[in-house]
Amino acid sequence: MNEPLTIYSKPGCVQCTATMRALDSAGIAYRVIDLTTDAAALDRLKSDGYLQAPVIESAGDIWTGFRPDKIEGVIRMLDETGGQA
Rank of each mutant, 00 (worst) to 15 (best):
C13A: 06
V14I: 14
V14R: 11
C16D: 01
C16Y: 03
T17E: 10
T17I: 15
A18W: 09
A18C: 03
T19G: 07
T19P: 08
T19I: 09
T19V: 02
M20P: 01
R21P: 02
A22W: 01
A22G: 02
A22E: 05
L23P: 11
L23W: 12
L23M: 15
D24I: 05
D24P: 05
D24F: 07
S25L: 12
S25V: 04
S25D: 15
S25Q: 14
S25Y: 05
S25R: 12
G27D: 07
I28S: 06
A29R: 06
A29E: 13
Y30K: 06
Y30G: 05
Y30C: 06
Y30T: 09
R31W: 04
R31K: 13
I33K: 08
I33S: 10
I33E: 09
I33H: 09
D34P: 09
D34S: 08
D34E: 14
L35G: 06
T36S: 14
T36H: 10
T36P: 00
D38I: 09
D38C: 09
A39W: 07
A39T: 12
A40C: 07
A40V: 11
A40L: 12
A41E: 12
A41N: 11
L42F: 13
L42G: 11
L42S: 14
D43K: 15
D43P: 04
D43A: 15
R44M: 15
R44H: 14
R44V: 13
L45C: 11
L45Y: 11
L45K: 07
K46V: 13
S47R: 13
D48A: 15
D48S: 15
G49I: 13
Y50C: 08
L51T: 15
Q52V: 15
Q52I: 15
Q52F: 10
A53D: 01
A53S: 14
A53Q: 10
A53T: 14
P54Y: 04
P54Q: 06
V55F: 06
V55C: 11
I56K: 01
I56Y: 04
E57I: 03
E57R: 10
E57H: 11
S58M: 13
S58D: 07
S58H: 08
A59G: 02
A59M: 07
A59L: 08
A59P: 00
D61K: 11
D61L: 07
D61N: 12
I62M: 13
I62R: 12
I62C: 12
I62D: 04
I62Y: 03
W63Q: 02
T64R: 06
T64C: 07
T64S: 14
F66P: 01
F66W: 10
F66M: 08
R67Q: 11
R67V: 10
P68D: 05
P68R: 04
D69H: 03
D69N: 08
K70Q: 14
K70V: 04
K70T: 00
I71K: 00
I71L: 06
E72G: 04
E72S: 05
E72I: 01
E72M: 03
G73W: 02
I75N: 01
I75Q: 03
R76E: 10
R76N: 09
R76K: 14
R76T: 08
R76G: 00
R76L: 02
R76V: 01
M77N: 08
M77P: 00
L78S: 01
L78Y: 02
L78V: 00
L78N: 01
D79Y: 02
D79C: 01
D79N: 11
E80N: 12
E80Y: 03
E80H: 05
